[in-house]
Design a protein around this nucleic acid. Sequence first.
DNA 1: CGAGAAAACTATGTTACTATCAAAAAGCGC
DNA 2: GCGCTTTTTGATAGTAACATAGTTTTCTCG
Lengths: 142, 142
Amino acid sequence: MLLSKSAIYGLRAALYIASRKTDEFVTVKQISEELGISFHFLAKILQSLTQHGILRSFRGPNGGVALAKPATDVRLADLLNAIDGATMFDECLMGLPGCGHERPCPLHDQWASAQKQIKDIFENSTLAEQSERIQELGLRLK
Amino acid sequence: MLLSKSAIYGLRAALYIASRKTDEFVTVKQISEELGISFHFLAKILQSLTQHGILRSFRGPNGGVALAKPATDVRLADLLNAIDGATMFDECLMGLPGCGHERPCPLHDQWASAQKQIKDIFENSTLAEQSERIQELGLRLK
DNA sequence: CGAGAAAACTATGTTACTATCAAAAAGCGC
DNA sequence: GCGCTTTTTGATAGTAACATAGTTTTCTCG
């Protein structure tokens, strides 16, 4: 699996929040029910998004979570980074330390190309763009 | 990590064997020492390659493992398949069941493109080609 | 045939990820 | 202030991947 479950859940939840197009807070419970994700598990994931300044949260009645900044300012890569820390975008396919242009592994060149393409998916797209697409095309998060 | 440790070790070991350009048997111990991989762990991986008809093995003195068929007939994808079974080449990036052209997830199209490129790396290259490159360019397996 | 060498098999331990639960802290409204 | 709601935090299991150790089986060669 390319992404961890945590990353996938966090991604879907963030897209769900952004697609609502409102600043109102949503409860974690509602998100978990809408997307079919374990409430407690999701709560912990969203918590780390909050700590990384991607979401803001309020407790108590009418509380919940919301985006901490405009959806145009949140790249998908930021989400993955906040959730899983180091990603596989820069790792050698064969796990060799110090693999690079000077001391390449056998698959280095081909992998570098594919790697760039994957990297671009997450670095060149924002929550805003994606939620736009979701609403226009009626894409699913579940 | 895109590939599991098992897959990486198996890949490197297979390339090592193919690069020797001889039909003589190599011991698992020698491979494990040359590549810096745990002997027992590697033995288990090579065992499954043997069971899938990619390697052949002999016990006892002068025993060891060798390719079961010409290196030109072994695609890298065959190795991954034998080691890990189902790969991530056909999975949805967001883990949604039934994600496809009709009911796509938000990232489906972009991912499908990157996915194809990765798939090609493993399906369109054989042990023969890669070991050729390794010897010509002096690439490293460790 | 017996000794040694090597793969094959079985078992155990370690770590990280996934998932769930329970309690605490914080905020809202009456 | 009190009770309710909701996030936050900490603790606890289950599971799979990673790693190591030991034992058994099979083969070769003297």
